[in-house]
Design a protein around this nucleic acid. Structure first.
Length: 259
DNA sequence: ATGCCCATTGCAAATGGA
């Protein structure tokens, strides 16, 4: 079973690229971020034609997340990250799919740093930490998948110096990511010793895709209960090279059947 | 210090994301 995460950066404008990727790689579960559309504009029918059922938490113009499943119906668990009823941004969606808890998240970018948007990012991170703790302690097989908007270490970016004042590299979000990892999650895409970093995002600016000037900010965090089933992980770089592509590439994990 | 890209808004060039 393949679980993927893809910041599609406007699901309506980029439906052709999404469709092309789904047809080639055929993931079983897909977490989408940055839909940038309300639920009534979501392309349910076009994705159903490819065999996918969708659970959608939309929002006009910004944010928006969805969970797609092929051959399974995603069973809704929650549509908001707990901890702040006043937060109306669509950045979290959680569902059970084929016995796995799938959490699709779009952590706030936090730029410009410092400022109120950065403060919102850190507050959101706190809420994620609390809820993720509940999830991992439940003992259920869980994957936290999405755009975390955090470059975990200097090895996860082509040039840390070029982004030193960016919210994605600040010590605070890096520490928050590290604190989250200490709950016992496994960063499935973290490169092993000597392996190249699998970037997942290349800004549209400054010719960064052709130069492979990338960042690793989309993550799949696997719970202890799910870890024995983790077979492999990777990034579908080809999707980033398509005409009119999102600035992110899809990342995925392959899971074995339960023992 | 700024623009570089991209889609949207609203129908031109400004806005704002990241």
């Amino acid at each position: 079973m393949r679980v993927a995460t893809y910041n599609i950066n406007n699901v309506v404008a980029r439906l052709p690229q999404l469709r092309a990727w789904l047809e080639v790689t055929k993931p079983d579960v897909v977490c989408l971020q940055e839909l940038k559309c309300v639920e009534s504009n979501f392309p349910y029918e076009e994705l159903a034609a490819l065999g996918y059922e969708a659970l959608v938490q939309g929002q006009k113009t910004w944010n928006g997340v969805a969970i797609l499943a092929r051959g399974f119906t995603p069973l809704e668990i929650r549509r908001q990250l707990p901890g702040d009823a006043a937060d109306k941004q669509s950045r979290y969606l959680e569902a059970a799919v084929n016995g796995i808890v799938v959490a699709c998240l779009y952590l706030p970018n936090g730029n410009p740093w410092p400022g109120p948007k950065f403060d919102y990012k850190m507050a959101w991170f706190d809420r994620l930490h609390s809820h993720a703790s509940t999830l991992i302690r439940s003992g259920h097989p869980v994957v936290l998948a999405g755009d975390f908007n955090v470059v975990p270490t200097d090895d996860d970016i082509y040039s840390p110096a070029s982004w030193k004042d960016n919210a994605l590299l600040q010590p605070e979000p890096r520490a928050a990511f590290g604190k989250l990892m200490k709950q016992g999650w496994t960063d499935a895409l973290k490169p092993k010793r000597g392996q190249a970093t699998p970037y997942t995002y290349w800004s549209y600016l400054r010719n960064r895709w052709p130069r492979d000037a990338g960042l690793r900010i989309d993550h799949l965090l696997v719970s202890k209960a799910l870890l024995p089933r983790l077979v492999s992980a990777g990034v579908d770089k080809a999707a980033r090279g398509l005409e009119g592509a999102s600035d992110h590439a899809p990342a995925w994990i392959e899971l074995d059947h339960p023992a």
